[in-house]
């Protein structure tokens, strides 16, 4: 392998044949975790971008009637127009509100007669909670009954959920790393036992522990890369399927933003990472086992 001579009869090694298969499964799981983690990052960015910098002001129906409501709305619009932290503000047209309610209440003429609260969309010029607080205070001064929603509560909850998934993905990565290392430790120990006599001979003819460890490490590297590539090959169609399913979901909920380059690079690096981890683990395992000998 790699054109480098091996002194161990590795083709006869029954003890570690399962390693490639296990690495394949582990890399498949790691790939899934990487994608979940990346996609959550994309989602959070997207939601954040669409939500921060906006406020929704709701002016409840005034008991005094539509006219009083309209006056209040104009008063608030006036305040907002003069506020330095506000970039743009406009009343949501009644037609748009009824359209939003359509799915729940039906599109009948009757809706247009319903008393509805007025909504004002606000785009902030200045970001940050301080500006939001200042704008909120100004609105409240003009119209104490106004309800201001900066979408923070909603966003924070959705973000916690997303971050929860992120933590799960990271945990999967850690577990996969641990499982891979343990797999290599046990497989290497089994090989050491299987090749005990060969290793004794290699020692007698002058091989150092590092030389023998390097042979196991090289084999583990190759197994890790092959298993990793197989896991990735298995993952590609799975990812394509999920991407297709996601593309059918409403784009308001799941933005069809492309996954970042870092995601694809991380996926591509997984087989090599698996190989390097396997190599290092095998090397350490052999060194430790041999150092216990005479």
């Amino acid at each position: 392998m790699f054109g480098i001579r091996s002194d161990l009869p590795l083709r006869r090694d029954t003890a570690s044949r399962f390693v490639v298969w296990l690495v394949m499964v582990l890399v498949f799981m790691a790939s899934l975790a990487v994608t979940v983690n990346s996609y959550i990052g994309v989602l959070i960015d997207d939601w954040n971008r669409s939500v921060t910098g906006t406020l929704t002001v709701q002016i409840p129906i005034a008991a005094a009637g539509d006219k009083a409501s309209a006056i209040l709305v104009n008063k608030v619009l006036d305040v907002l127009a003069r506020h330095p932290a506000v970039a743009k503000s406009e009343a949501v047209p009644r037609a748009k509100i009824t359209a939003l309610l359509g799915p729940w209440l039906g599109n009948s003429e009757a809706i247009s007669d319903l008393p509805l609260p007025a909504l004002i969309d606000v785009e902030m010029a200045t970001e940050g909670t301080e500006a939001v607080t200042a704008v909120t205070a100004s609105i409240k001064a003009a119209a104490p009954e106004a309800v201001i929603d900066d979408h923070r509560v909603w966003l924070n909850r959705v973000m916690s959920l997303a971050q929860g998934f992120g933590v799960v993905a990271l945990t999967i990565m850690l577990l996969v790393t641990g499982a891979l290392a343990l797999t290599i430790v046990f497989a290497t120990r089994a090989s050491l036992a299987e090749f005990a006599q060969v290793i004794d001979i290699l020692h007698v003819v002058g091989a150092k522990d590092g030389y023998i460890a390097a042979q196991f490490a090289r084999r583990a590297l190759v197994q890790g890369i092959i298993g990793g590539a197989a896991g990735l090959a298995l993952y590609a169609p799975a990812l394509a399927l999920v991407a297709w399913l996601a593309s059918r979901v409403d784009s308001e909920v799941l933005p069809d933003t492309a996954l970042p380059a870092a995601h694809w690079l991380t996926l591509a690096a997984l087989p090599l990472a698996a190989g390097l981890l396997a190599m290092l683990t095998a090397h350490i395992t052999v060194r430790r086992a041999l150092s216990a000998k005479v």
């Binding site: 020692h203 007698v204 003819v205 002058g206 091989a207 150092k208 522990d209 041999l290 150092s291 000998k293």
Partner: peptide, 10 residues
């Protein structure tokens, strides 16, 4: 040490 033994074995 083991490393030394390997050198001597040669």
């Amino acid at each position: 040490k083991r490393g030394r033994l390997a050198a001597i074995r040669r």
